Amino acid sequence: MVASAVSTLTTRRSSYPGWFYLPAAVIYGVLFLLPTFASFYFSLTRWSLFSSSFIGFENFIQFFREPFLIQGLVNTIIYAVITSGLKVVIGMLLAVMLTSQIMARGLLRSLVFFPVLVSTIGVGITFTVLMHPTQGAINEGLALLGIKGPGWLTDPKVALFSVALVDVWKGVGLATVIYIAGIVAIPKDYYEAARIDGGTKLQNFFYITLPLSRPATATVITLSFIGGLRTFDLIWAMTKGGPGFASDTIASVIYKQYQSGFFGLSTAGNVVLFILIAILVVPITIFLNRREGHQ
């Protein structure tokens, strides 16, 4: 009885009053909810900075009639799958290495995470120079080995994948940090029991590290996939959607419409992108969390 009363009293004292959440709710409403509902409204109008007229779903109809929208949609999904998949695999492998007993482990962790801190535009400009088809350091290095490098950003078949690889280089550090936190949180008793039973390092990885890192995997997949679907800055800095429309994503198509002065049309595109992310990410998140709950 006494223990129960103390527990209840502690719980009551540690709970926050309702008004305590009000500032966060106001900020969330002003910075997220209000712009979201405003976007839905303005996507149904033809608007400028000083006037708007309601036109219904005409913006959406026109947006889906864009000749390169389907290619942009396919490119967006391909980009998101490639970047999120590689970040999961490479991030996990780097995290395993950086949680093992290796020399200069702290320094290596800093080096892996450093690209995350660099400006995306800066990274894009730098790799645009490095990937120049004739004067870039990458192709010049390949030429020394007798290999003719491709037109990384000028070949329509390669451009999207080149930008995706740069995205992975920049973002894998965050995935690695998340995985390091997940691996460090695994109780050492599992590894000790496996050592006593004669388990190898490979068996430890597949039967202990990998399954018990599922929460980290779910986080990395969700964040990376959302980032891949809404990517714009790196694409625009390196290719501007080119050559032609080969590396266009939905976000770059939206920006081109905005540049042309079609504000209502670009707003409709933002709504389409919002719905696309929700349709793809919500089921994935539910699935990952459900699988996590069964562990």
Rank of each mutant, 00 (worst) to 15 (best):
M1N: 11
T8L: 15
T8R: 15
R12V: 12
S15M: 15
Y16W: 11
P17Y: 06
P23N: 11
A25V: 08
V30R: 00
L31A: 08
F32P: 03
L33V: 05
L34W: 00
P35N: 08
A38T: 05
S43M: 02
S43G: 02
L44V: 01
W47C: 04
F50S: 15
F50A: 14
S51R: 14
S52R: 15
I55N: 03
N59R: 02
N59P: 06
F60M: 00
Q62A: 14
F64G: 10
P67T: 15
G72Y: 12
G72H: 10
T76K: 09
I77V: 13
Y79S: 08
V81T: 15
S84W: 02
G85Q: 11
V89K: 10
L93N: 12
L94T: 14
L94K: 13
A95F: 11
A95Y: 08
V96N: 12
L98F: 05
S100Y: 01
I102K: 02
R105Q: 14
G106H: 09
L108S: 07
R109W: 06
V116N: 12
V116Y: 13
L117T: 14
S119Q: 06
S119A: 09
T120A: 10
G122Q: 08
F127C: 05
L130I: 11
G136A: 04
K148E: 15
P150K: 10
D155Q: 09
D155V: 04
P156W: 02
A159V: 03
F161D: 11
A164V: 09
K170E: 15
I178R: 12
G182D: 11
I183K: 04
A185M: 09
Y190W: 09
Y190H: 04
A193Q: 07
R195S: 12
T200F: 10
K201C: 01
Q203K: 09
P215W: 11
I221L: 14
T222Q: 09
L223P: 02
G227Y: 01
L229D: 00
L229T: 00
L229N: 03
F232W: 02
L234Y: 03
A237Y: 06
M238Y: 05
M238W: 11
K240S: 10
P243N: 10
P243Q: 01
S247L: 08
D248P: 03
T249C: 06
S252N: 04
Y255I: 09
K256D: 15
Q259Y: 11
Q259S: 12
F262G: 06
F263E: 10
V271Q: 04
F274M: 12
F274G: 00
I275H: 08
I275W: 14
V281L: 12
P283F: 13
G293T: 02
G293F: 04
Q295G: 12
